[in-house]
Every structure is written in structure tokens, then in C-alpha cells.
Design a protein around this nucleic acid. Structure first.
Length: 159
DNA sequence: GCCAACGTTGGC
DNA sequence: GCCAACGTTGGC
């Protein structure tokens, strides 16, 4: 099974890339996803070893901030059971969980790649995050788009 | 704050 | 099951 690529959105005011970096082992459960399409991507398609861009949304400079790797496949999102969590779902139970999360590990922070930069590359025109009105917080990324962006990053960050 | 997009809810 | 109203996302 070939590795897949993703884009994971997070609001830096809620959980930014530096928060992930500060977690033990730079790992964290990716909780709080409350959209069925995004949940199904995690449940059906996300596998250990898949890689994703960590994307900052709803902030002054939205864009890619780093690269993460999936380290645990989908399991029940514990925040749905926690009445004190803003992600609490009274319709979910431990016996019948509704929402899932995966665990990710920060591979590395990257230089910020803003939306405006992403838009300058015709190679990336198909990316969901560039579509206006896009709201999906977990999006698949084509292998060609992934490769293109990694090459751009490598060019800007000579070893 | 505005507004486009679009998912969810609820009356029928 | 339809669909209008409503709520949320997210860039600007």
C-alpha cells in the first residue's frame, strides 16, 4: 500500500505547530475533528507512516508550517466523552463512539509557506486548501503536489 | 466585520 | 425525503 499524503488544518490559537513540538516526543492525538468527511479520511485511508502538512488556518498568515507523520491509526477521540471539553458530544458514548482521531508526530517545522505563495504555483492549483470556501480540516494531497512542495522546501533550505 | 461556501437541523 | 433556515469555517 503506497503512502498517502494529507493536509491537516489547525488554528494556531488553539493548537499551533509549536504546541505539537512541545509535546513529549513531539507527538499528539489529532483531536477535535467534528466533520464526517474528515473523520472518514482518518478511519478509512490514513495509515501509519502517512505524511501530512501541518497547516495554520484562521490566523494572520495562513499556510503550511511543518510536516507531520501518522504514528497511530484511527481510535476514538477522547474529547467527545469529556463534558468539560468544547468538543464534548452528548450523542457519543464509549460503547458507541462517533468521532475518531489519529496520533501524529512532528517530523519538522518548515519555513512558512503562505497561501499567496501556494497560489503562485500552477502545479498546486488542484489543492483543496486553495479552493475558496474550503472548510475541510483534513484533505488528501496528491503525491505530485507533495513532491513539488518538498522540492520547493529543499531548494529554500539547502542542507 | 463581511461574506462565500457548505454542513447540519428540523418542520413538513 | 425535501429544503429553507441556521451555524460554522476561514480568507480577506
Amino acid at each position: 500500500m503506497p503512502k498517502r499524503y494529507w493536509l491537516l488544518k489547525s488554528e494556531p490559537a488553539v493548537f499551533g505547530i509549536d504546541r505539537l513540538a512541545a509535546e513529549p516526543g513531539a507527538r499528539s492525538a489529532w483531536t477535535g475533528v467534528r466533520n464526517y468527511q474528515a473523520r472518514n479520511f482518518m478511519r478509512d485511508d490514513m495509515r501509519i507512516g502517512d505524511r501530512a502538512f501541518f497547516y495554520h488556518s484562521s490566523c494572520a498568515r495562513p499556510g503550511i508550517a511543518g510536516i507531520v507523520e501518522v504514528t497511530r491509526e484511527a481510535f476514538p477521540d477522547p474529547t467527545q466523552f469529556d463534558p468539560s471539553s468544547e468538543y464534548f458530544d452528548p450523542g457519543a458514548s464509549v460503547e458507541r463512539p462517533r468521532w475518531l482521531c489519529v496520533e501524529v508526530r512532528l517530523v519538522r517545522k518548515t519555513r512558512p509557506i503562505g497561501l499567496e505563495e501556494l497560489r503562485t504555483h500552477p502545479e498546486l492549483a488542484g489543492m483543496g486548501v486553495l479552493r475558496r470556501g474550503n472548510r475541510l480540516s483534513i484533505q488528501p494531497v496528491d503525491a505530485a503536489e507533495w513532491r513539488f512542495l518538498c522540492e520547493r522546501l529543499a531548494a529554500a533550505e539547502p542542507a
